[in-house]
Write a protein that binds this DNA or RNA. Structure first.
Length: 889
RNA sequence: GGGCGGAUAGCUCAGCCGGGAGAGCAUCGGCCUUACAAGCCGAGGGUCACAGGUUCGAUCCCUGUUCCGCCUACCA
């Protein structure tokens, strides 16, 4: 009784409903996936959000789509696992905690490593993982019992095991190479973690005098401060201007060191002054050139971005201050030839945006080529499908040009590299567990490597480490490989590619069958949402305001493949209205359920039941087609098309037509027709709720709970499939006719401004017996929906005086609306209609008169055209006759 | 430099295998018609970016052009 009352509210109030059902699902284990189930598996691992993160639009879209798939598959009878968890996000988290401590006046270095890491864990316990609760708000059907964190003991063991294994196979090595260094975060970064941005800079032309005093060479540089570490100047050996200089020495300005002129074909003759200063310790290309020519690699910068002891009098200066000083000094010495404005892209740290310094450093690397090859093959062979397919190109492009992956980070928060340096023999011991003594010399003075691993190293193991690897667990057997990975393209390389590489290497199988790559959510103007632009739409506020279901539906219906989502509140509001529409349709159905025998039962209906009338057969046919379509579209990850179809069905077909048509049998007529129509209403509504549940989980659960209080959660109900027995082309055709006739009548009323309160008489002239038969059995419906007093159906006859007329094919319709009829307006209206009909006739005549069309077009198309031609011809004749009659008045 | 995508109603976007162009919002007109005014019934609005080609037929397939995004690169 009390439940009934809730539903009687005129508007749907999402607030109370959502929390109630989420806890219900959670408490009753509806999200739990059973690894011992005999049902076929369907599994997804969540792209683990950073523990520092809070829910943004990207997460909302990403997780809505996953939830749709999970709920859909669960209802389809799969043992459906959505594996949740969070990522420790090394640099980002360290930065957050550091900032927090600094506000309290605590310095990280003072605290020391161990204490600091403790603080991070404390922080994580208190405020980390806020996003998990926000995902729950979104309705995410994650199996929270399985929640994992990349720093968990199990996952950490997986990381160590992987490191040791790859090291043993020679795929992990340590070496002195050029890496990207963030002077603010004090750590190395991988190539991917550097964000390049176009910046206005300057190109400085600097003259380097020849040691023999016979002249000078001019080099161009954007980073003059690095000249302090120059080891040579390179020219192209084919460049006649400078070829003779090769082998000579130059005086490095400011430092007064002698450096050689070398020949290297890397140098672009046309760029700058045609000569290149070579700084092997501070530029990746120069590093290569240095190796080719055996040049010394002199570092002139310290880890904090200041100049080091090799920088002479500039030692201790901050790098950009040094740049200024160097330029001034060069100018004083008359060695600065010119300065040009120059637009170039400058790399910044992806976490703190500080300008990154390429620098030589001893780091750990993963040799990537042997891993990339099989990873490309997996996609090439179709073992992994990337959807939409065009991302495959991007994937291959990157994988082909991939360079070794720098995995060591000089921060404290993360998986410490399982390597121990022997103080006695300098041997590096790599092991899963802390070794007691050095494997080489047996010495006991071992100190662990201080570096930690790139966060993505542990993320790359996510699809199997979360399922228990390296233990051979039942979950791993049941759910690996996972079914699909849903993610944004921004982490295709960071994460997706690396999961594929590691999955193949360590599990011997792909981590997922499909990769579905979705769009970016932008603001209404198409701008990327960002804090600095201040155009962020907070999903939580949207959900609060319009309801989670409306929000999710908006994202789903806008998620067309290959196009970004431009989100605006207006759209969400529109789908909030949709939720309300469903609410009210349900309200209508439930209101009339009193005395309905099927209430609480299964509403079972059988095809071919004689009690079903045309409208019943029609809506059931449409319902089953909708179910077929929705399943098909979800199978292809076409969330927008699936949801649009449901929207269309619910609003346009079920509410606008079927419910309106049902009113006749509900409010007047016998008990049997009433029972029948209620059964169809209830069945259609209940099926629609199941169809809609993956998209709008809360409202569907709420309504179905009130319809079928005994039958348990909608989550354990079956997802609707198409039952071909219900498909009824004849019913759809006949309903089409009725809808057309009604449409024509309503159009006349609308155009003539006949208010709904006026109930005119109608006369229909329908010469075709079959069509007349269809209409004759449905006169009541037409009278009701067109707002008529009565309707007369005849095979033929005269145009009644003072009536407005319209034509559907060969059917003439006359409405007695004398008091609203203005002859002038009526004539204009008919003339317009005639003109349009004439154009139709001409269109088809022209086409059918084309010999090659008739010869070559398929029979179906021809038949269709002929039929349309006949219809428009019939219509044309009738409209012109009516127009003539009108003019004669 | 290389690659990918987009251009369709005033706005935001759908459009499957090529067969008379669709939705939502906005606009205009009529309505509190016994589920819903967060609603109902109508109406107007398009050279499917441009130029060629293939085809009986092109918004759709092919080529080129313009404009706009994005990704990527060793742009001293």
């Amino acid at each position: 009784m009390s439940e009934q009352k809730i539903l009687l509210n005129k508007t749907y109030e999402h607030g109370t409903v959502e929390d109630k059902w989420y806890s219900f699902w959670l408490e009753n284990g509806y999200f739990h996936a059973d690894e011992n189930s005999t049902k076929p598996p369907f599994s997804i691992v969540i792209p683990p959000p950073n523990i520092t993160g809070s829910l943004h639009m990207g997460h909302a879209l990403n997780n809505t789509l996953q939830d749709i798939l999970i709920r859909w598959k669960k209802m389809q009878g799969f043992s459906s696992l959505w594996q949740p968890g969070t990522d420790h996000a090394g640099i980002a988290t360290q930065n957050v905690v550091e900032r927090m401590l600094r506000e309290k006046g605590i310095d990280r270095d003072h605290l020391g490593r161990e204490k600091f890491v403790e603080k991070v864990w404390e922080w994580k316990k208190e405020s980390g993982g806020m996003i998990v609760n926000q995902l729950k708000k979104l309705g995410a059907a994650c199996d929270w019992e399985r929640e994992r964190f990349t720093m968990d003991e199990g996952l950490s063991a997986a990381v160590r095991r992987t490191f040791v294994r790859l090291h043993e196979e020679g795929l992990i090595y340590q070496g002195n190479y050029i890496i990207n260094w963030c002077p603010r975060c004090h750590t190395a970064l991988s190539d991917l973690e550097v964000i390049y941005q176009e910046k206005k800079g300057a190109l400085y032309y600097v003259r380097y005098p020849l040691a023999d005093g016979t002249g000078s060479l001019t080099v161009a540089t954007t980073r003059p401060e690095t000249m302090l570490g120059d080891a040579a100047v390179a020219v192209n050996p084919d460049d006649e201007r400078f070829a003779s200089c090769i082998g000579k020495n130059l005086i490095l300005p400011l430092m007064k060191r002698e450096i050689p002129v070398i020949g290297d074909s890397y140098v672009d003759v046309k760029f700058g002054a045609g000569a290149l200063k070579v700084t092997p310790a501070h530029d990746p290309n120069d590093f290569e050139i240095g190796n080719r020519h055996g040049l010394p690699k002199l570092k002139v910068m310290a880890d904090d971005g200041s100049m080091n002891e090799n920088a002479g009098k500039y030692s201790g200066m901050e790098r950009f201050a040094c740049r200024k000083a160097v330029v001034e000094d060069l100018e004083k010495e008359g060695l600065l030839e010119k300065v040009e404005d120059y637009l170039h892209s400058v790399g910044g740290c992806y976490r703190c945006h500080t300008v990154v310094e390429p620098t030589i450093s001893r780091q750990w690397f993963v040799k990537i080529k042997p891993l990339a090859e099989p990873a490309m093959e997996a996609v090439r062979s179709g073992k992994i499908r990337i959807i939409p397919k065009n991302w495959e190109n991007t994937y291959f492009e990157w994988m082909e040009n991939i360079r070794d992956w720098c995995i060591s980070r000089q921060i404290w928060w993360g998986h410490r590299i399982p390597a121990w340096h022997c103080g006695d023999c300098r041997e590096v011991n790599v092991a899963v567990e802390t070794p007691e003594k050095c494997v080489k010399c047996g010495g006991a003075s071992l100190t662990q490597e201080t570096d930690v691993l790139d966060t993505w190293f542990s993320s790359a193991l996510w699809p199997f480490s979360t399922l228990g690897w390296p233990e051979n667990t039942q979950s791993l057997k049941k759910f690996y490989p996972t079914s699909v990975l849903v993610t944004g393209f921004d982490i295709l390389f960071f994460w997706v590619a690396r999961m594929i590489m590691f999955g193949l290497k360590l599990m011997g199988d792909v981590p997922f069958r499909d990769v579905y790559i979705h769009a970016l959510v932008r603001d209404a103007e198409g701008q990327k949402m960002s804090k600095s632009k201040g155009n962020i739409i907070d999903p939580l506020i949207i959900m609060e305001k319009f309801g989670t279901d409306a929000f999710r539906f908006t994202l789903a219906i806008m998620a067309a493949q290959g196009r970004d989502i431009k989100l605006s509140e207006d759209r969400v509001e529109g789908y909030r209205n949709f939720a309300n529409k469903i609410w009210n349709a349900s309200r209508f159905v439930l209101m009339n359920m009193d005395g309905f025998n099927g209430r609480g039962g299964t509403f079972s209906l059988l095809p071919g039941d004689q009690r079903l009338d045309l409208t019943d057969r029609w809506i059931l046919s449409r319902l089953n087609k909708t179910a077929a379509y929705v399943n098909e579209m979800l199978e292809e990850y076409k969330f927008n098309q699936a949801s649009a179809r449901i929207y269309q069905f619910v609003w346009r077909e079920f509410c606008d037509w079927y419910i309106e048509l049902a009113k006749g049998r509900i409010f007047s007529g016998g008990e049997e027709p009433r029972q029948t129509v209620l059964a169809v209403l209830a069945h259609t509504l209940e099926t629609t709720l199941r169809l809609l549940h993956p998209f709008m989980p809360f409202i569907t659960e709420e309504i179905r709970g009130q319809m079928l209080p005994e039958s348990g959660s909608i989550m354990s109900a079956a997802y609707p499939q198409c039952d071909r027995e219900w498909l009824d082309e004849a019913a759809e055709f006949e309903m089409g006719l009725i809808m057309e006739v009604l449409g024509a009548m309503r159009a006349v009323r609308g155009e003539m401004n006949v208010p709904p309160s006026a109930k005119p008489l109608a006369v229909l002239l329908c010469p075709d017996p079959a069509r007349r038969e269809v209409l004759s059995t449905k006169i009541d419906y037409i009278v009701q929906l067109a707002g008529l007093k009565a309707m007369e159906l005849k095979p033929a006859g005269e145009r009644p005086a003072g009536h407005a007329s319209t034509v559907v094919g060969d059917i003439e319709i006359f409405l007695d609306i004398k008091e609203f009829l203005n002859l002038e307006e009526e004539r204009t209206r008919l003339e317009k209609e005639l003109k349009k009909t004439r154009e139709d006739v001409e269109f088809f005549e022209k086409k059918l008169g084309n010999k090659s069309f008739v010869e070559r077009a398929p029979e179906e198309v021809l038949a269709e055209h002929r039929e349309k031609q006949e219809n428009s011809q019939a219509k044309f004749e009738r409209v012109s006759r009516n127009l003539a009659a009108l003019k004669a008045m």
